[in-house]
């Protein structure tokens, strides 16, 4: 959080976005008994698997969301891949 953001009152996240983030975590846990710790562990393992085939993936940069669809839910993962290293391994 930079100096200017502090100056202009962006010091704290708006409470609505805090509420949304918290709810996302809570609902995933309610639906799938997936605690934040398990979720982090899952990201580490996803990163391990992908790193076998792709440039090294940073587990901390993986964003996992579970979205409710009509009949089924979907796990959506955003995984940033580093570019420009085609000759791995």
């Amino acid at each position: 959080m930079g100096f200017f953001e502090n100056l202009f009152g962006g010091r704290r996240d708006r409470s609505a976005s805090v509420a949304k983030q918290r709810l996302m975590m809570v609902l995933v846990d309610d639906r799938y008994k997936l605690t934040p710790e398990t979720l982090e562990q899952m990201k580490v393992e996803i990163a391990e698997v992908l790193s076998r085939y792709l440039p090294p993936v940073d587990a901390e940069q993986i964003e996992v969301k579970i979205l409710r669809g009509e009949a089924t839910d979907y796990l959506k993962a955003d995984i940033p891949l580093k570019r420009g290293q085609p000759d791995m391994g």
């Binding site: 409470s15 609505a16 976005s17 509420a19 949304k20 709810l23 996302m24 409710r68 669809g69």
Partner: peptide, 20 residues
């Protein structure tokens, strides 16, 4: 007013969370 100030979940937020 609270939604506009970012201090209340918007309808869009609730819809994204509940997906119905």
């Amino acid at each position: 007013r609270l939604v506009n100030r970012g201090e209340m979940l918007s309808v869009e937020d609730v819809l994204e969370l509940l997906a119905i």
